[in-house]
Computed example of a mutant assay.
Amino acid sequence: MDAEALVRATIPHTLEKVLGVESQSHSKAAAFTEAFLKNSIQQTTRHDLKSMLTHKAVILGYTRPKKEKTKRNSKKAKGLNARQKRAMKIFQIKPEHQRYELFLPLQELWKQYIIDLCSGLKPTSSPQFVQQKLLKADLHGAILTVVRSKCPSYVGTTGILVQEFKHVFKIITKEDKLKVIPKRNSVFAVEIDGFVSHIYGSKFEQRASERSAKKFKVRGTIDL
């Protein structure tokens, strides 16, 4: 017996009273189906049972319980601003620390750093290649000499670079004096194991972190 014949089969007489069906007619069967569904399906105020039966499918809605949002601390740790740093004198080198010999180890470290950066310095090394590396390198520890400047008093000043700011170099001389040299309108010579390279201060009027990501032309000019 196939599925369709099984569905259309008549209900035995012995089950008519049990199921509450007095006749096998189509109308009685429909009444039984509706009564059975009424007892089986919970009544809701939103949907009418007859309208539900006319559809092939019923979409049941489900909403997830909302989780309580935890308040996150949106405040981020803020560093000191420029005014606060100046007030605390963070960048000031104490007089007792302004000694040339204290920065000699820094100079040796910088020399090795530049040699590694330039893949070794040789007499055959290209000056343009070395200058390009110096433009993006960190110069703290380098020995700088002012060879040209609009201010004649700066010319000939030599020392180890101990601090670099956006517009000035601070160097400590062999006489244990801290000199502040403006970058603009000055030309500096950098000496590394006998290899001397000249750099224009105007090209360095940036912070070291900003300069490392900038593209430079090898040749530069300066108005003196």
Score class of each variant (00 low, 15 high):
Q107Y: 15
S126N: 14
D193F: 10
T173P: 06
G201S: 15
Q128W: 09
P182K: 03
A9K: 08
F204G: 02
T158L: 00
R46Q: 11
L6E: 07
L121T: 10
T173I: 03
R72T: 15
E210R: 04
N39F: 11
I93G: 11
K217P: 15
S153V: 03
T173N: 06
Q163D: 09
M1E: 12
T145K: 08
I114E: 02
S149M: 00
E108A: 12
L53A: 02
A35I: 06
K215F: 07
R46E: 06
G220P: 06
A9H: 04
M52I: 11
A57P: 00
Y154R: 07
S186Y: 00
F195P: 00
S27G: 07
Y154K: 00
E101D: 14
E205K: 12
D193V: 01
P12Y: 00
P123V: 04
P12Q: 04
H140W: 13
E16S: 09
P65Y: 13
F216K: 05
E101T: 11
V130W: 05
Q43A: 09
V146H: 02
S153L: 07
L224D: 03
Y100M: 11
I93N: 02
N39Q: 06
V146F: 08
V146M: 12
E16V: 05
T145L: 05
Q84T: 08
A137M: 03
T33S: 06
E164T: 06
G220K: 13
I171T: 07
T173Q: 03
E210S: 11
R8Q: 12
G20E: 11
A82N: 02
K94W: 09
F36I: 10
S25N: 09
R86C: 10
E16N: 04
R184E: 09
R184A: 13
Y154G: 00
I114F: 09
D176F: 02
K217W: 06
H55I: 01
Y154W: 02
T44L: 02
H55A: 13
I160T: 00
G120E: 04
I115C: 04
V146K: 06
Q42C: 02
H198T: 14
T124A: 07
V21S: 00
P127G: 04
Q98F: 01
D138R: 05
K166N: 11
I222C: 15
L161M: 03
K177D: 07
D176C: 00
V162A: 02
F32A: 09
P12V: 00
A87H: 08
L144F: 13
D223G: 07
K28N: 04
Q163Y: 11
Y154S: 01
L19D: 01
T124P: 07
T158I: 03
L161T: 00
E101A: 08
G120K: 01
C151M: 05
N39V: 08
K217R: 12
I199H: 05
I41F: 08
V187G: 01
R46K: 14
P123E: 07
D116P: 00
S212Q: 14
K76Q: 15
F165L: 09
D48M: 05
S125G: 08
H140F: 11
A82I: 14
K133A: 14
Q84E: 15
V180A: 02
K111C: 12
D2M: 05
L178M: 10
L53P: 03
A87Y: 14
V180Q: 01
I222Y: 04
F195D: 01
H198L: 09
D116N: 15
K133C: 13
